[in-house]
Design a protein around this nucleic acid. Structure first.
Length: 102
DNA sequence: AACATGACCTCTC
DNA sequence: TGAGAGGCCATGT
């Protein structure tokens, strides 16, 4: 199935995000050619060892439900991301090294 | 096969 | 600044 391949692509990209950087659901979706919700759906399975905390909502917001939101925030802060208010500056911490297809 | 759901995004008002 | 609507499409029932 295509969807399984896309899921693997998503996981591969998330694994590539370097420490201290983040990527949004929408951007990841744009890279692999699918939508933001599909990225979220893939993250629901969350394989062990995956740096899921580096995947955030558009504009640098935490969209993770429940207590994981707190864990994610702590981990991001531990990687050097400074929060301002609810979220942080996505432009500042976005993983820029990965070139997006266009 | 139809239907509901969702760790989203963008545009309105 | 915040709430609502619509679009999106893989997943699970």
């Amino acid at each position: 199935m295509d969807s399984a391949i896309i899921r693997n692509e998503i996981y591969r990209i998330v694994r590539k995000i370097p420490r201290g950087s983040v990527l949004s659901y929408g951007d990841i979706g744009r890279i692999v050619g699918t939508g933001p919700r599909q990225v979220a759906a893939a993250m629901r399975a969350c394989p062990a060892g995956l740096p899921w905390h580096r995947v955030v909502g558009a504009g640098g917001t935490i969209r993770t439900p429940g207590e994981y939101a707190w864990i994610q925030r702590e981990r991001l802060i531990a990687e050097g991301i400074r929060f301002r208010g609810r979220g942080f500056s996505y432009d500042l911490y976005r993983w820029k090294t990965g070139k997006y297809p266009h």
